[in-house]
Write a protein that binds this DNA or RNA. Structure first.
Lengths: 237, 237
DNA sequence: TTTGTTACGATGTGATCACATATCATTGAT
DNA sequence: ATCAATGATATGTGATCACATCGTAACAAA
C-alpha cells in the first residue's frame, strides 16, 4: 500500500462497486457520483485517477471522463496544481446554497402541489413511513439519506419541470457529501425532531393543493438541516 | 473535403481560433463554448470529434474532454447513437427556462440592488450606451449579444452569490445558441423596441436600490426576448 | 538541529493505436 | 422498380504509451 494512505483509506475505495450498465465512463460516473453523495470521501480529501482505476478495474480513460464530468458539475474540484479533491464547504457557501435551494425547490413544490397525482402522494406516505423507521436505526445512515432524497425528488418530479429538476439535482450533488460528513449520529438524533414532521406537512400540503403551505414546510425542513450543518459540522469561514 | 459537408460547412469550423492559454482541454472548451454561444452551430446539427480536432489542430483527447464537459453542462447532447449534436429547443423548454431564469436572475437583481457599487452602475450606463449603438449596426450581431450578456452579468456579479451566478451562466449557455438562431435581423429590429428601455429601467432600479422595480424590468427584458423566440424562431412542439 | 539542494516517485495531460458499432451506399434478388 | 442484404467507411470509446510537472523525502552543508 505504497503511497495510497494519503488520506484515503483503502477500505473506503473498495466500497466502490465495479460497475454494471452503459458505457464504462457512464458507469464509473454513476458509481463515483453515488459514492460522493453518500459521503464516501471527506471534503477536502484528494483523490487520484489511478486510485479510481484500481478501484473500478478499468483503465484511465473512463475514470478521466467521470472525474471531469463531476468536476464540471461542481461535485469535484481541480486545483491549480491539477490535483483533484472534494470541494471544501464554507459557511457562506452553505448559506447561499440554502437560499438558492429554497427558491428552486420551493418553486418545484408549488408546481407539484398543482400537478401531483394522488397515487404519488400515497408513495410519499410510504416513503416517509420508511424514513421514520430508518431514522431509529443506529447503523450506517446512508440509507436514511437515500430515502430522504427519494422523498424530496418524488415531489420535485411531480412538478414536471425537467430543467428545474436538473438544477436541483446539481445542488444536492454539491451539498450531499457535507450532509453525511457534518451530520453524524448526533445530527440524526436532532434531525428526528423536525424532519418527519416537516415531511408530513409537505404531504398534507400536496393533498390540499396548498402551494404556500408546501413551501413553508420545505423551508423548515431545509432550514433545520442547514442549521445543524452550521452547528455540528465545524466548517471553515 | 470528403464527408465533411454533412451539415457543417468548413468555413464555420475554421472560425474556431486555434487556442491560447491553459491546458489544451480547457482551451478547446473555451473556444467551443464561445463558438456555441455566438450561434456558430445550428440547433440539431451534429458535430464529430474529428472535425473539431482538425479545426483546433490538436488530437482527440482535448476535444473529448471539452465535448464531454459541454455535454455535462447541457450545451451539447449525446444521442443514444453516441452521436453528438447541439440540443434542439422546444417551446415547452423555452417557457420553462424563462420561468426558471426569471426566478434565478430575479433573485440576483434583487441582491445586486442592495449591494451594487455606484462605480459599477456607471459601467452599466456605458454598456447600455454601446448596446444601443451596436443595435443600429447591420452586420453580424454576435457583438450585440456579447454586450447584452456583459450588461446582465455585470449586475449578476454584483449580487456576490457565486453559486447562483454559476447556475445563471449555465442557463445562458443552454439558451445562447437559440437566441442567435431564432433572432436574426428581424429579431434585432423588434428587440430594439424594448431592450434598451428595459435596461434603462434596470439601471434606474439599481440606482434607487429598488429591488422590485429591478425584477419587473428584468421580466420585461427576458419576456420580450422569449416572446420573439417563440414567434420568429419556428420551434418544434 | 536546521536549511537548501537534489533526486526519485507519482500524477494529470496529451498522443497514438485498436476495436465495436452505427451509418450509408452499393449490390443483388424478387 | 422496390426492397432487403451486404460491404465499406467513419465515429465514439477504451487501452496503452510518453512526458512535463509537482510533491516529497533523502541527503548534505552550515
Amino acid at each position: 500500500m505504497q503511497n495510497l494512505g494519503i488520506n484515503l483509506h483503502h477500505s473506503a475505495l473498495s466500497r466502490l462497486n465495479p460497475v454494471e450498465s452503459g458505457t464504462l465512463g457512464k458507469r464509473v460516473y454513476d458509481e463515483l457520483r453515488n459514492f460522493l453523495m453518500v459521503g464516501g470521501v471527506q471534503p477536502g480529501e484528494k483523490i487520484t485517477l489511478r486510485q479510481l482505476t484500481s478501484a473500478c478495474g478499468t483503465s484511465l480513460m473512463p475514470v478521466r471522463e467521470a472525474v471531469q464530468r463531476l468536476a464540471a458539475e461542481g461535485a469535484l474540484e481541480v486545483l491549480p496544481n491539477r490535483a483533484i479533491r472534494v470541494p471544501v464547504m464554507t459557511k457562506a457557501r452553505v448559506k447561499e446554497i440554502l437560499k438558492v435551494r429554497l427558491m428552486l425547490e420551493g418553486m418545484a413544490v408549488e408546481e407539484a402541489a398543482a400537478r401531483i397525482q394522488v397515487s404519488v402522494i400515497e408513495q410519499l406516505e410510504e416513503l416517509n413511513e420508511t424514513f421514520s423507521k430508518e431514522m431509529r436505526r443506529r447503523d450506517d445512515s446512508s440509507r436514511l439519506f437515500q430515502v430522504n432524497k427519494e422523498f424530496h425528488f418524488t415531489i420535485y418530479r411531480a412538478a414536471e419541470m425537467p430543467v428545474l429538476l436538473g438544477i436541483i439535482e446539481n445542488m444536492w450533488l454539491q451539498i450531499g457529501p457535507f450532509l453525511h460528513f457534518s451530520l453524524g449520529v448526533r445530527g440524526r438524533e436532532a434531525t428526528s425532531q423536525f424532519a418527519p414532521d416537516s415531511h408530513k406537512r409537505m404531504i398534507r400540503a400536496m393533498r390540499q393543493r396548498n402551494a404556500v403551505m408546501g413551501r413553508k414546510a420545505l423551508a423548515s425542513d431545509l432550514g433545520g438541516a442547514v442549521e445543524l450543518m452550521l452547528r455540528l459540522g465545524n466548517l471553515p469561514d
